[in-house]
């Protein structure tokens, strides 16, 4: 291995060959400005075309390139080799998800959970289609942070609760539920809180907080879940005290 090389240890799993996942090592040329995804692409284009992973935008916006890098969930396009490499870079599929092939995991479960929190504006009356709903800059600010989620699933990979109870609605879907609940244009908050005010909803969360540590977009899903717990409790209290009332 030359001084200007770096070793990638990549977890391989080929469903059609059966067996358990194994590690394969590749030695590739090192550049100071290379990200982990560049290394994977170098391997695919020059050494081993069978290596399988997802990616598209290589600018941290499409959310498809997540993997565990040296044990931490990361966007491979946003992780510099120089920041993680201690002799070797270990790349594995995101934890807590079924592996389809090599670094490709199955996200269907998340899409079902996302759909379950009604991730869109709910209204009885849509009003005049030619007029915008008035929303002040501070109203947008109230849900802006949660609206930045790129569905990359790093937070689910980091979450020990999701790891042991797969039915847990989880960080990103909760953050998006809060995003719509905080939107002044929406009227669906009550139903969303009812959905989340369950064991498999926000109450499963034990506030480990790892999800917010690994989130590449600063969505802070852990705080979102805490807020939802508070809102769900308030809703519950209000219903006890004032039966028949609904809340925003």
């Amino acid at each position: 291995m030359a001084a200007s090389d770096v070793v990638f240890r990549v977890k391989r799993y080929r469903p059609e060959s059966g067996g358990r996942p194994t590690f394969q090592e590749y030695t590739i040329p090192y550049r100071n400005d290379m990200v982990v995804l560049d290394g994977l692409n170098y391997i695919k284009d020059h050494i081993d075309p069978t290596l399988t992973f997802r990616w598209s935008c290589r600018m941290g916006i499409c959310g498809s390139c997540g993997a565990d890098v040296n044990g931490q969930p990361r966007l491979t396009c946003g992780t510099y080799v120089r920041d993680v490499h201690r002799g070797a870079v270990t790349v594995e599929p995101l934890s807590n998800f079924p592996i389809l092939k090599d670094l490709v995991v199955d996200f269907d479960d998340f899409l079902r959970k996302l759909a379950s929190v009604t991730p869109y504006i709910v209204r009885k009356d849509w009003g005049d289609l030619r007029k915008e709903y008035v929303q002040y800059p501070e109203d947008v600010e109230a849900y802006r942070q949660q609206s930045l989620c790129i569905n990359c699933m790093l937070c689910y990979a980091a979450c020990p609760v999701f790891g042991s109870s797969p039915e847990f609605v989880g960080p990103a879907a909760s953050a998006l539920a809060l995003r719509y609940n905080r939107d002044t244009r929406d009227e669906g908050a009550d139903a969303r809180l009812a959905r989340l005010n369950t064991k498999a909803g926000v109450w499963e969360c034990t506030f480990v907080g790892e999800c917010s540590v690994v989130c590449p977009k600063d969505v802070d899903p852990a705080a979102a879940i805490q807020t939802l717990k508070f809102l769900a409790t308030m809703r519950h209290m209000r219903r006890l005290l004032m039966p028949g009332s609904s809340s925003r």
């Binding site: 869109y120 504006i121 289609l129 709903y133 929303q135 800059p137 802006r144």
Partner: peptide, 10 residues
């Protein structure tokens, strides 16, 4: 906007 796009506001 009606579907929830977070357009910047004046």
């Amino acid at each position: 906007e009606h579907w929830g796009c977070p357009w910047s506001r004046d």
